[in-house]
């Protein structure tokens, strides 16, 4: 490369620097900052994945397998397609904006938002189905009290006295086929349900991790919706444009990370377990 061309290079670069200074943006710094944030997200979810691997491949492997079968594969796979498609419309939006088509950028952002909401609706139905089987995020700990017999006996006795039933009638609703009392602090209707559905410690851990990880992931999807709506506004008001699209790219990076996490969550919860 000749000296003249190098000199030209320098000049153009300076012009470009000025151009970016003029808009008060640091494109590269912004992007790298976003990546640093994404690394912290990776560590946040990574720790949970590590716990899931250790529990799922160890002594609870059989429990995880049984519990995993109870998840709806159709809904899980459907949601995988929804998220993958939303990742596609996200990159379409960036390409559209870079090519100068504001209309298509807005359209693709809007489709991405709709797909994100679709994901959350499916998630809602999945969680509701679990609630019907008395699996609640907060109750996971209560279920585990099955395995704390000392407190249980005390609670069982107290509850029997308060119920006003005969011991035979009380036991009929409170004792399952193995002769184990149902956990304390639940109603008679719930106790009947427990006689049919008992969860082992491994299954309790599985559902605990399921609610925690898909819950945290769902929370990220909701944040993504807010960010995408904000981007829609920015593109609409021309603060994010074909010349200044760093924000849209960074929101895109976040959105793809949400997809990336689901890529691992799906097989671990719905398929392998």
């Amino acid at each position: 490369m000749s000296a003249t061309v190098e000199a030209q290079d320098t000049q153009v670069n300076q012009e470009e620097l000025f151009h970016f200074d003029h808009h008060h943006t640091d494109y590269e710094g912004g992007k790298f900052g976003m990546w640093l944030f994404l690394f912290t997200e990776l560590v946040l979810f990574g720790g949970m994945f590590l716990a899931l691997f250790v529990y799922g491949t160890g002594e609870y492997a059989a429990d995880f397998h049984a519990a995993g079968k109870s998840l709806n594969l159709f809904k899980g796979a459907g949601n995988t397609l929804v998220l993958l498609t939303s990742s596609l419309t996200m990159v379409y939006a960036i390409t559209a904006l870079q090519k100068g088509s504001k209309f298509w950028a807005l359209t693709h952002i809007a489709i991405t938002v709709l797909l994100a909401l679709t994901f959350m609706v499916v998630k809602y139905f999945e969680w509701t189905a679990k609630f019907e089987h008395h699996l609640f995020p907060a109750k996971i700990a209560a279920l585990e009290s099955i395995y704390g017999p000392s407190d249980l006996k005390k609670a069982y006795t107290t509850e029997y006295k308060e119920s006003g039933l005969s011991i035979a009638a009380f036991n009929a609703i409170k004792v399952d086929s193995n002769g184990n009392p149902a956990p304390a602090g639940i109603s008679a209707e719930e106790a009947k349900e427990y006689t049919h559905t008992r969860y082992t410690r491994g299954q309790v851990i599985f559902y605990g991790m399921y609610f925690t990880m898909t819950g945290l992931h769902g929370f990220h999807v909701l944040i993504g919706v807010v960010l995408l709506l904000w981007m829609f506004w920015c593109v609409l008001k021309n603060t994010v444009t074909a010349e200044n699209f760093g924000w849209l790219e960074n929101v895109g990076l976040y959105w793809h990370l949400v997809d990336l996490i689901w890529i691992y969550l799906f097989p671990l919860f719905y398929l392998v377990a």
């Binding site: 799922g56 491949t57 990742s87 596609l88 996200m90 990159v91 895109g252 990076l253 793809h256 990370l257 997809d259 990336l260 890529i263 691992y264 799906f266 097989p267 671990l268 398929l271 392998v272």
Partner: peptide, 21 residues
Amino acid sequence: NLPIAMLIASCKAGLVLAYFM
């Protein structure tokens, strides 16, 4: 089953990282 699923997931993650990201 687990290593196979993780291998496929990592291929998907690689595609997302390399191209979409």
